[in-house]
Design a protein around this nucleic acid. Structure first.
Lengths: 130, 130
DNA sequence: CAAAAGCGAAACCAAATGGTTTCGTAATAA
DNA sequence: TTATTACGAAACCATTTGGTTTCGCTTTTG
């Protein structure tokens, strides 16, 4: 009991903020290929290993990468799950640039996830977030 | 000639950074409904009008809203275009959580935009961005 | 065992971010 | 014409962000 950690729980850094930084986006690309230890990862960048390490922590906080210790090295690998939230956010706006496509997509995708419905146009209330 | 401004040109603030802030995301939601003058918009928030105004400028910089002066008021409206870039970015990762859907989607969407192909897995090179 | 490799934590720093208040200036209303 | 409304610009401030260097700890390797 206590922390209730686990799968899709949000952390102190959310996906939106995590992917705001170009270096972090680049890291995701790099890691989406294969798992890598920190030193190898940071060899791809100009900045110090420590700096890269911090970016990795932020990504981990957002759940976008997972860390795994192997001997003296720490390996990171990409974790796509949190991107679903981003996708869901985006889906709402899709209607604005292509109505038909959005409809088809919603239909096709309504299988595994259940029909996602990000609030069908509310207005006067103070929009909390998203 | 000179600045080559216009449609999809990036500015000093990109989409990724623009949507990183919760208030800004909320603003997009609000404006996606209808066009509004600054004062009306800022009535939906706790912060000062000036603060909201700054957020709007950042969104405008990223091309996500458009400003239009009417008499003494400045009205803002949502502009979906830049979200395409975000979607494109996301599309790359879609393969990681649902292969079949991604395939179908790519097929259906290959009409207006041409088959987008965000580099089919490169690795050792220093990933520039995205 | 001693040296080196692989990392994170801590302290520190400059610049960006998210806010505020104060002021000036157009447009509208009285 | 004089208020008043609507807004941006500027100055200012605290906090966060993105980076660095230094240090210490653990796991290899020689």
């Amino acid at each position: 009991m206590s922390k209730a950690d686990g799968s899709a729980a949000a952390a102190k850094h959310d996906v939106f903020q995590a992917i705001a930084d170009p270096t972090r986006r680049s890291l995701l690309r790099l890691l989406s290929d294969r798992e890598m230890p920190v030193t190898v990862i940071s060899n791809h960048y100009e900045m110090t290993r420590t700096a890269v390490s911090k970016h990795l922590r932020i990504l981990a906080d957002a759940g976008l990468v997972r860390e795994r210790k192997v001997g003296r090295e720490t390996r990171y690998r990409f974790e796509p799950e949190p991107l679903r939230e981003l996708k869901k956010w985006l889906d709402y706006y899709e209607r604005f640039w292509d109505n038909k496509m959005a409809a088809l997509k919603r239909f096709v995708e309504s299988g595994p996830d259940g029909p996602d419905d990000p609030a069908p146009l509310a207005a006067a209330e103070p929009p909390t977030d998203e």
